[in-house]
Computed example of a mutant assay.
Amino acid sequence: MGKSILKYGLIAGVVAGLPISFMSIAGKDQVPPSWGMLVGYLTMLVAFSTIFIAIKRQRDVERGGVIRFWPALGIGLGISFIAGLIYMLAWEAFMAATDIDFIGAYSQAMIAEEQAKGASAEAIAALSAEMQTLAVDYANPLFRMPMTFAEIFPVGVLVSLVSAALLCNSRFLPATRRKGDAGQVAR
């Protein structure tokens, strides 16, 4: 089971981490924050489809068509943890390899968004001060790394909970059997 968690966690981490880096490079941080978040979280959901696949494979192939909720959840959380680490390390590598000022561009986009909404000068000044504090904090890897991990891990927890709840019911997407297999699950 550990090899499966590692394999699917690595796949999920790469699937989630690479598009964000490519989008940042291609967009030169000109992607509006709301679109970046939408694409990022959709990519994470696609990446975490590996949780469903891994739990179903464990249930159907390794456990004869039955898996309990807690072991299924454990598989999902393990994959989420590995994927979160890979995602975090991919972001750190991207930040180290490029000279893109992500937090500066993010701050400018947030301020421009508020200005477009017609926010007051006081609100803009308060947001600017908040963004300056965030920039100082974000420069510290001990602040940035857990923050990056916290972007992806809750998504993995949610997908793990849903996948475990669905797949602990052996009647949900049951294993397919080939003709001639007496009780064996198709691999």
Results as ranks from 00 to 15, higher is better:
2 G>S: 13
100 I>A: 13
11 I>L: 14
84 G>D: 02
148 T>E: 13
68 R>V: 04
102 F>S: 01
76 G>R: 05
2 G>I: 12
113 E>A: 11
38 L>M: 15
144 R>M: 05
37 M>S: 15
38 L>G: 09
121 A>P: 00
70 W>A: 04
162 V>C: 01
137 D>V: 14
104 G>W: 04
94 F>N: 03
54 A>T: 06
86 I>S: 08
64 G>E: 08
17 G>Y: 08
96 A>N: 15
12 A>Q: 09
89 L>E: 05
26 A>Q: 07
166 L>A: 11
150 A>F: 01
135 A>D: 01
102 F>K: 00
89 L>I: 12
74 G>H: 12
19 P>R: 10
33 P>M: 11
57 R>F: 06
55 I>Y: 09
25 I>S: 04
63 R>P: 02
151 E>F: 14
125 A>Q: 10
180 G>T: 06
114 E>F: 09
172 F>P: 12
42 L>R: 07
81 F>T: 04
4 S>I: 10
150 A>E: 05
172 F>A: 10
162 V>H: 07
63 R>N: 12
177 R>E: 14
94 F>Y: 08
89 L>F: 06
7 K>T: 11
154 P>D: 03
88 M>F: 00
129 A>E: 13
175 A>Y: 00
33 P>S: 06
165 A>V: 03
100 I>Q: 15
20 I>W: 12
64 G>F: 13
144 R>G: 00
78 G>P: 05
163 S>H: 02
86 I>N: 07
66 V>D: 12
23 M>G: 10
55 I>S: 02
145 M>S: 11
65 G>Q: 02
165 A>Y: 09
67 I>C: 05
91 W>F: 14
125 A>R: 09
60 D>S: 10
48 F>R: 11
186 A>E: 06
167 L>F: 05
166 L>C: 00
98 T>Q: 08
83 A>K: 07
143 F>K: 00
170 S>H: 14
168 C>H: 15
60 D>L: 10
38 L>H: 07
82 I>Y: 13
86 I>P: 10
185 V>Q: 12
29 D>S: 14
98 T>E: 09
97 A>G: 09
182 A>W: 15
53 I>E: 11
129 A>H: 06
37 M>T: 15
117 K>S: 03
158 L>Q: 03
79 I>F: 08
44 M>H: 07
41 Y>N: 13
141 P>V: 01
113 E>V: 03
2 G>Q: 09
45 L>I: 11
172 F>E: 09
166 L>M: 12
156 G>D: 13
107 S>E: 05
67 I>W: 04
116 A>H: 02
172 F>D: 12
121 A>Y: 01
11 I>Y: 13
81 F>Y: 09
53 I>Q: 13
152 I>G: 01
71 P>T: 12
145 M>F: 13
62 E>H: 14
162 V>M: 09
76 G>T: 00
35 W>C: 08
184 Q>C: 10
20 I>E: 15
54 A>Y: 06
119 A>I: 05
3 K>M: 07
58 Q>W: 03
61 V>L: 11
88 M>T: 10
68 R>M: 13
11 I>C: 06
59 R>W: 00
52 F>Q: 08
101 D>F: 01
59 R>V: 02
119 A>E: 02
79 I>P: 02
96 A>R: 15
140 N>P: 05
136 V>D: 07
135 A>T: 01
145 M>H: 06
94 F>E: 08
18 L>T: 08
